[in-house]
């Protein structure tokens, strides 16, 4: 007997996040009943959001403590939902918290687990998943066997689902008491990601990154203006973050963030292997660099060999023109 699929929802600014919507789409494509689960201060507000995308049964652990407790605090209420719905699959979006939850629930619910999944299909005794490995240099397919599977998707690997509005049925889940080791951990602050007006680096579907080729922080606005025109997030190479032109939260690469947007634009970045591993799984890569032999052109799909100080402003103007900005 295969049971329903539970989608773990994440909420930001009162809305389900992009990665959650992608998970809803995947769950619906699995063709089994889909239920939603949300924990945190405004969990109830996610009910109508889930229902907009056809997920009508929504389990909510509406408790502000779950926002500031370690992620492990969500395991208890989620496990309760998995048990009461007789679920077979848990799906989380491709976020840090989604991935962590999958690791914990693999143990707490004794499930097979996979993260960073880009394809997924129900098979006879479980679920087959496909996922990039080795920084996108290879792909593996795995069979998750047994009766229970916990899966986190790769961000942007799946489209958001079409709307299919209905009326949600909310089910309250009691978060219960926090286990003592978790209660002792204290979240002392949250600083919003420095992101200008644009999207966050790892959720953005377009990322424009700048490197040492920009010569100094006073020129970084060239990258930011192009990003703003594209509706993109801004990233940077480590040369830029090490020099303090931008905070480390901008850094893409091995010791920074791994991003996999639809479009990645590398401006004045040479393409060191430590940078490449953080962006190679982007769908389309564009490089702008004055050195035709820069390694970035080996991994890029499209390249412009030229002076970024001329190319980038022209590109920004052209993007603004075609987008009517």
């Amino acid at each position: 007997m295969t049971g329903p699929t539970v989608v773990v929802g994440e909420v930001a600014d009162g809305h389900l996040t992009g990665p959650t919507l992608e998970a809803i789409g995947v769950a619906r494509a699995l063709g089994r009943p889909t239920v939603g689960f949300v924990a945190g201060a405004h969990a109830r507000s996610a009910g109508p959001e889930f229902a907009r995308y056809g997920v009508l049964e929504v389990y909510v652990a509406d408790d502000a403590r779950l926002d500031s407790a370690p992620g492990g605090a969500r395991v208890g209420p989620l496990r309760e939902v998995l048990a009461s719905t007789g679920a077979s699959v848990v799906l989380a979006g491709g976020t840090t918290n989604g991935r962590e939850l999958v690791g914990r629930i693999a143990i707490a619910w004794d499930a097979a687990a996979a993260t960073g999944v880009t394809e997924l299909a129900a098979v006879e005794d479980g679920v087959r998943v496909r996922r990039p490995i080795f920084g996108g240099r290879a792909t593996e397919s795995r069979r998750l066997t047994g009766e229970r599977q916990a899966i986190a998707l790769r961000p942007h690997a799946f489209p958001s689902p079409a709307e299919s509005p209905g009326t949600p049925h909310l089910h309250e889940v009691s978060p219960g008491a926090l286990p003592a080791p978790l209660a002792a951990a204290e979240r002392t602050g949250v600083a919003p990601t420095v992101r200008g007006a644009g999207p966050g680096l790892t959720d953005a579907s377009i990322v424009v990154s700048g490197g040492r080729g920009l010569r100094g922080p006073e020129n970084f606005h060239l990258v930011e203006e192009l990003a703003a025109a594209l509706g993109a997030a801004v990233g940077a190479s480590r040369a830029v973050t090490d020099a303090g032109w931008r905070p480390t939260s901008f850094q893409v690469g091995q010791t920074g963030r791994a991003v996999s947007p639809q479009l990645y634009v590398a401006v004045g970045i040479s393409g060191a292997i430590q940078h490449i591993v953080g962006m190679i799984s982007s769908r389309v890569i564009v490089a702008i660099n004055s050195d035709a032999s820069a390694p970035i052109f080996k991994v890029a799909d499209y390249g412009v060999v030229g002076d970024l100080f001329q190319i980038v402003p022209a590109l920004t103007a052209e993007v603004r023109r075609v987008r009517g900005l």
Binding site: P70, G71, G72, V75, T96, R99, E100, L101, V102, G103, R104, A106, I107, A108, A113, A114, T115, G116, P132, I133, F134, G135, E140, P179, P181, L182, A184, A185
Partner: peptide, 20 residues
């Protein structure tokens, strides 16, 4: 494999908080 599963699974197995 870039799974990122082990730290969270260890937290759960050992009954201690985990953070990645």
């Amino acid at each position: 494999d870039e799974s990122g599963i082990v730290p969270a699974a260890l937290g759960q197995l050992l009954g201690v908080p985990d953070f990645s």
